[in-house]
């Protein structure tokens, strides 16, 4: 997994609440058996004026020029600013993969859906929670300032605005540790293999029906 320490980047808006994972990456693209290549179809139904197909080149597809991510001023954006309950709906990890593949490294919102929030950390994408009024302020500043950039430090758990204003955010210690170091958490869990085996011994004794059920 890609690590995240500090990052400075252009901020782009997704100015609506309840952005669902179907919107982030429509289902036809989930047919891929790969983990990469979803960026060109991120927000497909909003970015383009036609219906996208998997394995189709997006060069030459008609762009929706009213969609902010298509505005020249937001090209190269790597921080997505959005509203409440971002990432609701399906558990598809293709959503953070698509956002990451598009070029986003961090999202800022007042709240996230649980599964999306969790998936993002696993995919090297940092979902930052800031309160509604701070998010409002950032929207205002971003709309007013072309090339509006934010600097994010995961280590210090801070977002710094161009005027130097600093906002603190919180993350779980374990998730932060993994993301800061780009760690494979499967490897970490396997360090506890003895504890897992011990649990299973106890489980087999107490609830033997949980094992080999498909042989019944």
């Amino acid at each position: 997994m890609k690590s995240f320490t500090t990052h400075t980047g252009i901020v782009a808006p997704m100015d609506r609440a309840n952005v669902d994972t179907d919107m982030i990456i429509p289902k036809q693209f989930l047919k891929s058996i790969k983990r990469s290549g979803f960026g060109k179809n991120c927000f497909d139904e909003l970015r383009y004026l036609d219906e996208g197909q998997p394995d189709q080149s997006c060069e030459g597809r008609p762009l929706n020029t009213e969609f902010p991510l298509n505005f020249p001023r937001y090209q190269g954006a790597s921080v997505l600013l959005t509203r409440e309950n971002f990432g609701c709906g399906s558990s598809r990890e293709h959503a953070p993969w698509a956002l990451g593949d598009y070029g986003f490294r961090a999202i800022i919102a007042p709240s996230y859906a649980d599964i999306f929030y969790n998936n993002s950390f696993k995919s090297g994408l940092l979902p930052i929670i800031l309160d509604g009024s701070t998010v409002d302020q950032m929207f205002t500043e971003m709309y007013e300032t072309e090339g509006y950039e934010l600097t994010i430090s995961l280590k210090n758990q801070q977002v710094v605005t161009p005027s130097g204003q600093t906002f603190a955010f919180e993350t779980d210690e374990f998730r932060r540790h993994c993301l800061l170091n780009g760690l494979d958490d499967i490897g970490l869990t396997l360090q506890d293999a003895d504890a897992i085996h011990a649990y299973e011994v106890k489980l087999k004794d107490q609830s033997p029906w949980l094992f080999d059920a498909f042989k019944r």
Binding site: I115, N118, I186
Partner: peptide
């Protein structure tokens, strides 16, 4: 019972566990 992402599918396949925080 709850949904998980693909990284967690891999995690459960490999370890039979999830790293979780109580809701």
């Amino acid at each position: 019972a709850h949904g998980i992402g693909t990284s967690e599918v891999e995690h459960v396949l490999a370890t039979q566990c999830l790293v979780a925080k109580k809701m």
